[in-house]
Simulated assay, not measured.
Amino acid sequence: MKNKLSNMMCLDLFLSSQSEENYKAIEHQITTSESIKFPLKSFGLYIDYFSAEMHNLDRENDINVLKEFASKFNWNGNLDSIFKNEDFEAIVLTNKKQEIIWVNDGFKEMTGFNKKFALKKTPSFLQGENTCEKTRDDIRKKIQLNKPFIGSVINYKRNKMPYKCEIKIFPLFSKNTTHYIALEKAV
């Protein structure tokens, strides 16, 4: 049975790689010993599951990196509460001057800029001609209040394409605010 399942998965892989035209040309030849037509759908389900698991592992790793920063800088509070039920693509960690000290891999996927390029810059390097000045001012004012907030801004990818970015910013502190975490996603 194990060998039969393995063969079915191989067949599923092969069939999923075929164009619709090629599949239609061979469809009549695809049967099992029980004369049941294929293709299998299980491999697609497995890939969906595997992708979700990889996303969860990436998220967990990002949070663990931030926990190392929390230990280093003696931040008060629970980082897990920041991430609970939050959907994001990128994480940006800045110091008090809002200079980027760390970004996750999702930052490169979302913006096209690699991690090294982003370091020591402020997130404003992502802004451009269609970024609303009022929005920029609102973000600055909200950061000065040292309270968590949500906003959205027009940012620009490395390839100069604009995208609307939802940001959730959380101040991090020991005695005073020392850093900020921004959770970002394109909307």
Rank of each mutant, 00 (worst) to 15 (best):
E109W: 02
M110D: 01
M110R: 07
M110G: 02
M110L: 15
T111Y: 02
T111S: 04
G112N: 03
G112T: 03
N114T: 08
N114W: 10
N114I: 08
K115H: 11
K115M: 05
K116D: 11
F117E: 14
F117T: 12
F117A: 14
A118M: 12
K120M: 11
K120G: 05
K120P: 06
K120N: 15
K121R: 15
K121H: 15
T122A: 02
F125Y: 08
F125N: 07
F125G: 12
L126H: 01
E129K: 15
E129L: 11
N130P: 01
N130I: 12
N130A: 01
N130S: 06
C132L: 09
C132R: 09
K134H: 01
K134A: 06
T135Y: 01
T135V: 09
T135I: 03
T135M: 09
R136D: 01
D137I: 12
D138M: 08
D138A: 03
D138S: 06
I139F: 08
I139P: 00
I139H: 06
R140P: 00
K141I: 13
K142Y: 09
K142A: 11
K142M: 13
I143D: 04
Q144K: 14
Q144L: 15
Q144V: 10
N146T: 07
N146K: 15
F149E: 07
F149M: 12
I150N: 12
I150E: 14
G151V: 09
V153E: 01
V153G: 04
I154E: 04
I154C: 05
I154R: 00
I154M: 10
